[in-house]
Write a protein that binds this DNA or RNA. Structure first.
Lengths: 151, 151
DNA sequence: GCATATGTGTCAATATCGCTGACATAAAAT
DNA sequence: ATTTTATGTCAGCGATATTGACACATATGC
């Protein structure tokens, strides 16, 4: 009889299974393109923050530049991401999606959006707001990463 | 002006950041033990389903037996998981946690439980129920995997 | 101008975790 | 007796991450 710990374990398991299925559809598409989840993340955050510098992307993703360099290099070479020098600071490489990159990004994001929307609909009134608030509260140092869409 | 797609993108990002931080603490502990996230999952589900067979664990985790064999072998050899033959079907190896395994499992689960509990508290009334319902609805073929705690 | 700091790229080695394919063994089911 | 099932194991591969070291261009501070 540990209803408290039990509901925590339920939540832990839901996080595991939900995240796996949340990423599963996109993962399958990516495989067909010869990409992995890391490419998706780069694609997503470049799309979300056009003109983002490599440094900023590193801060968002919290991976090493060597790890990012691999996927970014592939995405640039295959024409999904475009880079240009910052005119103010020519060391900085500003990243943005090409049309090709945008199309793939939309394809992937659509699947995930639809899954979330379906879950919101199925979960009933107000569940979406609770979902967002709990996830928000679960994140470390909120406010550390500022995305273009927020403020 | 795409409030709809924007809130979906917000949700996508929350899933990414929240899951990363949700697993982060446990990952750090595991590193100190020379283990990874895969060991955690095995440890967790064996703890949750004492006497589970390898086959059943594979069905829950949805990985190949070769992948599971690696982590399971380490956990058994280092005394975190105990195995014994099923007396009814002696091909089956029933898995359970040793005391040592239980201690590590509790250590890891405690961190995650606390993080979730904190998030529930911070998110306010009813948010926890909405959170659970949305995650539940996000999972593929609910009911496919029966855990001991459910019914 | 010179020294230092910053942004980026790259080479090399390593670890984790997933995969496929192939094969072996034991025991249960028919 | 044959087939199916549960498990284990060997070998190799690919994606993603890591640390450490170094190179280069450019910006900034003195």
């Amino acid at each position: 009889m540990r209803p408290h710990g039990d509901s925590m374990r339920q939540a832990i398991e839901l996080m595991f299974f939900a995240y796996r299925d949340f990423t599963g559809e996109a993962d399958a598409i990516l495989t067909a393109y010869g990409f992995g989840r890391a490419h998706h993340r780069a694609l997503y955050f470049v799309g979300r923050n056009p003109g983002v510098a490599v440094n900023e992307l590193l801060a968002i993703l919290k991976i090493t530049k060597q790890s990012l360099a691999r996927v970014l290099g592939q995405l640039i070479e295959e024409g999904y991401i475009h880079q240009e020098s910052d005119s103010d600071d020519r060391r900085r490489r500003l990243l943005s999606l090409t049309d090709k990159g945008r199309r793939l990004e939309v394809l992937l994001t659509e699947r995930q959006s639809r899954r979330i929307q379906r879950a919101f609909d199925a979960a009933g009134n107000g569940a979406d707001a609770g979902f967002m608030r709990v996830l928000e509260a679960m994140i470390d140092d909120r406010g550390a990463v500022r995305l273009s869409g927020e403020d």
